[in-house]
Design a protein around this nucleic acid. Structure first.
Lengths: 285, 285
DNA sequence: CGTATCGAAGCATAAATTATTGACCGTCGA
DNA sequence: TCGACGGTCAATAATTTATGCTTCGATACG
C-alpha cells in the first residue's frame, strides 16, 4: 500500500508530534527526497529520534525505508490527493466523478483490509457460525448503524442463521438478558462511544457471550471491551463523502465475513444453496 | 532522465569495475532497495568507495541519491513488480479472496455505470431535489430492497429532504394517495415484477407524480412504467455472491446520485454542511 | 488524594552508512 | 626510464540512522 495512504489512514490514532510529522510528509512528500531524518526533525522542531520512531511504528524498517517508499509513491503519483482535488473542481456529474468516488472507495477498502487481521475475520465467521447452530446471534446498531445490522441479519438468515435484531438500546438490553455462553452479540457503532451500547456489551460479556464490535478504527470504549473487533478506515475531507466511504468499506468487510461463512463449511454451503433456491421460488411466481 | 537510461548510455565509456557496477544495477534494480553501498560492493567483490565514486561520476549527490532515483524509475516503469508481489505474498489466500471480491464489485460497478446515462442520473437528482423542496419524496422497497430505500432515505434526510418511507405495499398505497404533481416515488425492486409495487407505481403516475425505479437491468414490468429508471448490472455464477455484487453496484449508483445532490446546488450544499455539523453535535457529547 | 503504570518525547550515544583522503599500482606517452 | 594520470582500495572522517535511558505527563487504581 502506498505509504501516504497508510499514513493518512493511521493519522487519527497518532499523538500530536506524530501527527505533525504525518501532515508534513503528506503535504511535502516531494521535499522528503532532500531531507535527512535530522533535517525533517529540525523543520518541525522535534527530535530526530521521534522521526525514526514514527517510521518504525508505521512498519517501515527505518527512515530511509520510508523515504524510499514515498519516492516510489510519488513516482507512481498514487498519492490520492491530486485526483481528489481534481474531483472537487468539477461540479458536473460525469464519469470521472463517479470513477473517482469508486477509487476513493477502493482506497478505504484497502486500508480497512490491512487493519483487520485475516485471523480476526476467520474468528468472527467461526463465532457466528457456532452461535448460529448452537446458540443465538444478537445484533444491534443505532441510526445509520442499524442499516448495516439489518442487511447483515438478512444475509445471515439466508445461511440459516437467524438473529435477534433490535434497533434500540432498551429493547436490546432486555433481549440480551436471555444470552448465555457461546452466544454472539454484534454491535455496530461507528464511533463506539455510545454509553448504552457499552453497557449492553459489558452485560453481555458478564453472561459469558462473545462480543463482536464493528467500529471506526480509532480507539473507542466499545472496541476496548470487545472479544473481537472489526475496524473500518475511511477518510475524506468532505464531510458528505466520508460516510459513503465508511459504509462501503464496512459493507465490504462484512461481505468478506459473509463469503467466508458461505464457503467455510461444506454442510452450511449446501444448506445455503437450498435456502437460496427456496427463497427464489417464493419470489418468482 | 531516468537513472537507468543514463547508466546504460554511459556504460561504454566506463572502466571495468564501473561497468560491473552498472550491469549489476541495470539487472537487479529492484534489489537496490535493500542494499547499502557496502553490500553492493561486497556483492561485486569491490570496494565501497568505488561504488560511491561511481554514483558521483554519474552526477548523483551520492549513493542514497542514486538509490532513490532508481526507486522512482522502477515505480514509474512498473518493472519492479517482482519484489512488490513478493512482499505482499503473506496472507495470500485471504487477501486474494477478498481482493477478488472487490474486483468483481468493480466490474459490476463499471457495467452499471455504463448502462445508466449520466443524463438520467442528473435527472434523478434534480427530480429528487425539486420534490424535496416543493413537494414530497416517497420511497419503498420490500425485503432486501428495503435496505437500500432505508439507507438512501437517511442520506436524503441529512440533505434536508425528508421522505415518506414505507416497507409494505398496502401502507404505501395509502400514503401515495396524498401524492400530487411534482412529487417523486422511488421504488426499489431487484426483479421489478412485484404486482403490488407496479400497481402503486401506476396509481402514483395517475396522480401526476414522477416514478423513479431502481431495478436489475433486465426488462421488467416495473421499469416499463417508470419516468426514470436506474438500472443495476451484477452477475456471478455463485448464487451467494450475486446479491453482494448487486448491493454494491446499486449502492454506488445511489452514492453517485447522492454526491450529485450534495454538490449540485450551492444553497443545498451549505444546508448540508450545517446539517452535518448539527448531527455531529447531537452525537458527540 | 497519593501512587503505580504506561506511553510519548527528548537527549545522549552507539551503530550504521556514506563520503573523502591518501597511498598504491599499472599504463601510457615523452 | 620516468613522471603524469586514472583507477582502485583501505583507512578514516563525516554524516546519518537507530537505540537505550531518562523525564514527564496522563490515566488508572487503590
Amino acid at each position: 500500500m502506498s505509504p501516504l495512504v497508510k499514513i493518512r489512514s493511521e493519522r487519527d490514532q497518532m499523538s500530536a508530534v506524530e501527527r505533525r510529522i504525518a501532515d508534513f510528509i503528506l503535504e511535502n512528500a516531494q521535499l522528503l527526497r532532500d531531507y535527512s531524518s535530522q533535517q525533517l526533525a529540525n523543520a518541525l522542531g522535534i527530535s530526530q529520534s521521534s522521526v525514526v520512531k514514527f517510521t518504525q511504528k508505521l512498519g517501515f524498517k527505518g527512515y530511509p525505508d520510508l523515504k524510499y517508499s514515498v519516492g516510489e509513491a510519488i513516482a507512481r503519483a498514487d498519492n490520492g490527493d491530486a485526483t481528489h482535488v481534481a474531483t472537487q473542481a468539477k461540479a458536473a456529474f460525469d464519469e470521472s466523478a463517479s470513477g473517482n468516488l469508486w477509487r476513493r472507495k477502493a482506497e478505504s477498502e484497502e486500508e480497512t483490509r490491512l487493519i483487520n487481521a485475516p485471523e480476526t475475520l476467520q474468528a468472527v465467521a467461526e463465532a457466528i457460525a457456532t452461535a448460529g447452530t448452537k446458540g443465538k446471534v444478537f445484533m444491534i446498531g443505532l441510526g445509520d448503524d442499524d442499516i448495516y445490522a439489518r442487511s447483515f441479519a438478512l444475509r445471515l438468515s439466508l445461511l440459516g442463521v437467524p438473529s435477534i435484531h433490535n434497533f434500540d438500546a432498551p429493547r436490546m438490553a432486555a433481549s440480551v438478558s436471555a444470552a448465555g455462553a457461546g452466544d454472539v452479540l454484534l454491535v455496530f457503532s461507528e464511533h463506539g462511544n455510545h454509553p448504552a451500547l457499552c453497557k449492553i456489551g459489558r452485560f453481555f460479556r458478564e453472561r459469558r457471550g462473545r462480543l463482536i464490535t464493528v467500529t471506526r478504527h480509532t480507539s473507542n470504549p466499545l472496541r476496548a471491551i470487545a472479544d473481537l473487533a472489526l475496524l473500518v478506515s475511511a477518510h475524506d475531507d468532505r464531510p458528505y463523502i466520508q460516510p459513503v466511504l465508511y459504509q462501503s468499506a464496512l459493507q465490504h468487510l462484512l461481505d468478506g465475513v459473509y463469503v467466508q461463512l458461505c464457503e467455510g463449511d461444506e454442510q452450511r454451503h449446501v444448506q445455503l444453496l437450498s435456502n437460496l433456491e427456496r427463497v427464489q421460488q417464493m419470489l418468482e411466481p
